[in-house]
Design a protein around this nucleic acid. Structure first.
Length: 476
RNA sequence: GCCCUCAUCGUCUAGGGGACUAGGACGUGGCCCUUUCAAGGCCAAAACCGGGGUUCGAAUCCCCGUGAGGGCACCA
């Protein structure tokens, strides 16, 4: 059997985190089994449909690296892959159900089921209409929907690969709408028809569909089709346990990328939400995952999304980049004013300390624009530094640096080490004031000599003099 | 309201009757390294929801309770 899985998003304009995880698991299941991964667009809701959204789906999938083998723009012989182009298929299938008694016409108006809001439809009264009554209503021009005829009694059992055997009484199932009055199928119906016609072997979707799965099974039965393997995935929730909601401002996949997270890191992190490799590994590229993913390590309980851990794993992915790769990414975040420095050197310093790409601009800002300097920065216990000592050090070290002819990290380090030894200082006592004078910030992407190297001789001396002046003024 | 599902450190998880003094990771605290900060190394605190069974033995199996989540649309 060739494994065929699909990702079936509705075109909403962005990639929900939970959807991305569903897509990822479906993709991995296909890849792991040398199967086929399919993209199908479920645009059956005419009101919520956004045309441009299709491009957003392509873009996100490409960004995440989830290549599909069949889809709207990649015919594999099972198309069309957009549901709005399959209307006649659904119509033909609904006719089959009508003929076999598996479905019936319902003439009730939208909000006219005769029930309280809190009560579900369950058994619709139109299911007992005689053929004559139906004919009469149709010729009278009454609009109708097609509903599924759920058995009056009994129960339906199915097996889920993650959750095991689940049984639901048929009395709990309602005569759900299959075909809307506008001629479009509902999600539930189109899903069953397409999954079967497209040869989907593993139906992978969110856990929220668990309790409606019996209705799917009943539909498969009515058609005489074999039921697929069900793989329901646990939900991804927020730290407080509530649902992710784009409307409430929770980030989508694209948002996370904009926030400075690498797509590969997001994919890695999200794979660990609801799945584990079974050992202690946590760093995975998509290619790694394709090798080790297995649906029997999927969890049952929902997982809380942690920005802390995502940030950490993002740092891991950043550090795993080659120097060139990081530099290319970092450059996008370098302010223009940084270009007068050797940005490759800066990138080398930045790579090991960057957790999110968006942290970069702030971290490198002092290079081209020295912030207002607070004298208290020169106070550092571990380096045995006070403003007074700093002043002494800077005054003494200035001529040493002025005399330096070769200006690079090694020479600077050598000269300063010699100075330190001759004077009997602690290393930090000299390095701290220099680094502070050069940056005027508490945290920098590198030590004193590395910064001096990048800033260049002229700028370095200028900043040290400014530091001396600052400290002198503070003394008065 | 009815139905379904879930339940191990704060969080993600390992665990599928004895290997559990419950392992790893993030985060937190401490130490080391060190030219700041990181990275790296080491250490620490931190969990089997509660109660009954079954068993020689239960985090692991069963039941009840509790808590949490999901479903019950002409939305997907």
């Amino acid at each position: 059997m060739i494994v065929r899985t699909r990702f079936a998003p509705s075109p909403t304009g962005y990639m929900h985190i939970g959807n991305l995880r569903t897509a990822l698991f479906a993709y991995l299941t296909a890849r792991r089994n040398n199967g086929v991964f399919i993209l199908r667009v479920e645009d059956t809701d005419q009101e919520r449909n956004i045309p441009e959204a299709l491009d957003a789906i392509y873009a996100s999938l490409a960004l995440a690296g989830l290549d599909y083998d069949e889809g709207p723009d990649k015919d594999g012989g099972y198309g069309p892959y957009v549901q709005s182009e399959r209307l006649d298929i659904y119509k033909a299938h609904v006719e089959r159900l009508l003929a076999s008694g598996g479905a019936f016409r319902c003439f009730c108006k939208k909000d006219d089921t005769g029930q309280e809001d809190s009560e579900p439809v369950r058994r619709d009264s139109c299911r007992n209409l005689t053929e004559h009554e139906v004919e009469t209503k149709i010729s009278a021009g009454e609009s109708f929907v097609i509903r599924q005829r759920i058995p009056e009694s009994g129960s339906t059992t199915f097996v889920d690969e993650v959750y095991g055997e689940i049984t639901i009484e048929n009395t709990q199932l309602d005569d759900q709408v299959l075909l809307k009055s506008d001629g479009f199928p509902t999600y539930n119906f189109a899903n069953v028809v397409d999954d079967h016609l497209m040869g989907i072997t593993h139906v992978m979707r969110g856990q929220e569909y668990l309790s409606s799965t019996p209705k799917y099974n009943l539909l498969y039965d009515s058609f005489g089709w074999p039921v697929p393997i069900y793989v329901h995935l646990p939900l991804i929730v927020k730290a407080d346990g509530s649902k992710f909601s784009k409307r409430l401002g929770d980030p989508s996949f694209e948002d996370l990328v904009r926030m400075g997270y690498l797509p590969g890191a997001i994919v890695n992190y999200i794979a660990l939400l609801g799945w584990s490799p079974g050992d202690d590994r946590e760093f995975f590229t998509l290619a790694d995952l394709e090798q080790v993913f297995s649906i029997d390590h999927i969890n049952k309980s929902s997982a809380a999304f942690s920005f802390d851990k995502l940030t950490w794993i993002n740092g891991e992915h950043i550090r795993a980049l080659s120097g060139d790769e990081f530099h290319t990414l970092a450059e996008i975040y370098y302010p223009d004013a940084l270009s007068r420095f050797d940005t490759r050197k800066i990138s080398r310093l930045m790579q090991v300390r960057t957790e999110k790409l968006t942290d970069i601009p702030q971290a490198v800002a002092f290079f081209f624009e020295l912030p207002e300097c607070d004298v208290s920065l020169y106070q550092h216990k571990k380096s045995k530094c006070t403003p007074q000592i700093s002043l002494d050090v800077l005054r003494a070290v200035l001529p040493v640096m002025e005399e330096l002819e070769v200006w690079d990290n090694d020479s600077l380090l050598q000269a300063l080490k010699a100075f330190i030894q001759a004077r009997g200082y602690k290393v930090g006592t000299v390095m701290w004031p220099i680094r502070t004078a050069l940056s005027c910030v508490l945290v920098t992407p590198g030590g004193a000599t590395e910064l001096a190297d990048i800033l260049g001789k002229e700028e370095t001396l200028k900043r040290i003099k400014a530091g001396i002046e600052k400290l002198e003024n503070a003394e008065k």
